Amino acid sequence: MFCFNGGPGPTALLTAGTHGDEYEGQVALRRLVHDLGKADVRGRVIILPALNQPAVVAGRRTSPLDGGNLNRLFPGDPTGGPTSMIAHYVATELFPMADLVIDVHSGGSSLDHVAMTLARPGQDEKQAEAIRRLIKSFGAPYGAMTKGESGGASTTLYAAAEAQGIPALTTELGSGSTLSSTGLTIAEGGLRRVLRDYGIVPNMDAPEPYPTQLVRYPIASIYSPCAGLFEPFAAPGEVVACGQRAGLVHRLDDALSAPVELTFPSGGIVTFRRFPTLSSTGDALFGLMAPLDVS
């Protein structure tokens, strides 16, 4: 944990490595640590670039100590397993210090994901406006207000922050067990802009943000109907139509059978696509989002 305390001002809590196989945030925060050592900080920045350290060291989504998925265990339990204890520490010790929270995630080893921010809707209009401000400042290509129906719901880090009235967001950047240069650039730029825009590091250099497209997410998903080899026909960010061919699953249990054809259940923008070819029954293969009408 790194803490840069410059006196009176807001506190930003910045985390990555909640899932150990997601790297853009881990690298972006490590770089930010070096930059903040030379910066004029007017407030406080708390950084945990490897929040679930056991999972980070193992390169896994979940902890090798107890199998815990940290982003499904908030607000945690001080008498639970190691992963639940981490969640409890963040929720009870760090959240009370924070004026804003950003938890940087990526598609990890399982998903190829568009670059986007996700945030809860807020408990009232004042909090909702603060969250929208945070989304705009971070400046990812897409931004969604969501209750986490596609994963985690109220048990995620950013949901636990919202429950305490703190403006918070998470991200999805990159894909696979590697480092996306585009995702890393978006993570670095977004974090630096937030610190500048909130007056915590007022002289921080930061690139211009992307014009964020607000979206509804999720609107539909496709899951693998059987164990097989996934052959996709669409890419993240692609606009697709209802009934359009999405891909094939070549069955593992019967090489002579025709592959299972998948079609999109609705029109929308492809949010993510499964990264590994080998898929099990029930694996998420595609997710869809749709532009949000804010007129």
Results as ranks from 00 to 15, higher is better:
residue 3 C to S: 13
residue 3 C to P: 01
residue 4 F to C: 01
residue 6 G to N: 13
residue 7 G to K: 14
residue 18 T to I: 08
residue 22 E to F: 11
residue 22 E to A: 03
residue 23 Y to E: 04
residue 23 Y to H: 11
residue 24 E to A: 07
residue 26 Q to R: 07
residue 28 A to P: 09
residue 30 R to L: 13
residue 30 R to M: 11
residue 31 R to F: 12
residue 31 R to I: 00
residue 36 L to R: 10
residue 40 D to P: 03
residue 43 G to I: 06
residue 44 R to E: 15
residue 48 L to W: 14
residue 49 P to G: 03
residue 50 A to M: 08
residue 50 A to I: 00
residue 53 Q to S: 05
residue 56 V to L: 02
residue 57 V to K: 03
residue 58 A to Q: 13
residue 59 G to C: 08
residue 63 S to I: 10
residue 63 S to L: 12
residue 65 L to Y: 14
residue 68 G to Q: 14
residue 69 N to C: 09
residue 70 L to N: 04
residue 73 L to E: 15
residue 76 G to W: 13
residue 84 S to Y: 11
residue 84 S to E: 15
residue 85 M to C: 12
residue 86 I to W: 13
residue 87 A to S: 05
residue 87 A to R: 04
residue 89 Y to Q: 06
residue 92 T to P: 05
residue 93 E to F: 05
residue 96 P to D: 08
residue 99 D to G: 12
residue 101 V to F: 14
residue 102 I to R: 06
residue 105 H to D: 08
residue 106 S to M: 06
residue 109 S to A: 14
residue 112 D to G: 04
residue 112 D to R: 11
residue 117 T to F: 09
residue 118 L to Q: 05
residue 119 A to V: 02
residue 121 P to C: 01
residue 129 E to R: 11
residue 130 A to G: 12
residue 133 R to L: 09
residue 134 L to K: 08
residue 138 F to T: 02
residue 142 Y to Q: 04
residue 142 Y to V: 00
residue 147 K to G: 03
residue 151 G to A: 11
residue 159 A to V: 00
residue 161 A to E: 06
residue 165 G to C: 02
residue 168 A to H: 06
residue 169 L to V: 01
residue 170 T to G: 10
residue 173 L to E: 12
residue 176 G to H: 10
residue 177 S to A: 09
residue 178 T to P: 02
residue 179 L to K: 08
residue 188 E to M: 07
residue 191 L to C: 09
residue 193 R to V: 04
residue 194 V to D: 12
residue 198 Y to P: 00
residue 199 G to P: 11
residue 203 N to T: 08
residue 209 P to A: 01
residue 210 Y to S: 05
residue 212 T to G: 04
residue 213 Q to Y: 07
residue 216 R to P: 00
residue 219 I to K: 02
residue 219 I to Q: 03
residue 220 A to G: 06
residue 220 A to K: 09
residue 221 S to H: 12
residue 221 S to F: 10
residue 229 L to P: 01
residue 232 P to R: 05
residue 236 P to R: 03
residue 238 E to T: 05
residue 239 V to F: 08
residue 240 V to D: 09
residue 241 A to H: 10
residue 241 A to W: 09
residue 246 A to R: 12
residue 249 V to I: 15
residue 250 H to N: 14
residue 252 L to I: 11
residue 254 D to V: 02
residue 256 L to Y: 14
residue 265 P to R: 08
residue 265 P to I: 06
residue 267 G to V: 02
residue 274 R to T: 07
residue 277 T to N: 13
residue 279 S to W: 15
residue 286 F to S: 03
residue 286 F to Y: 15
residue 286 F to R: 03
residue 289 M to C: 07
residue 291 P to D: 07
residue 292 L to S: 07
residue 293 D to R: 05
residue 294 V to K: 06
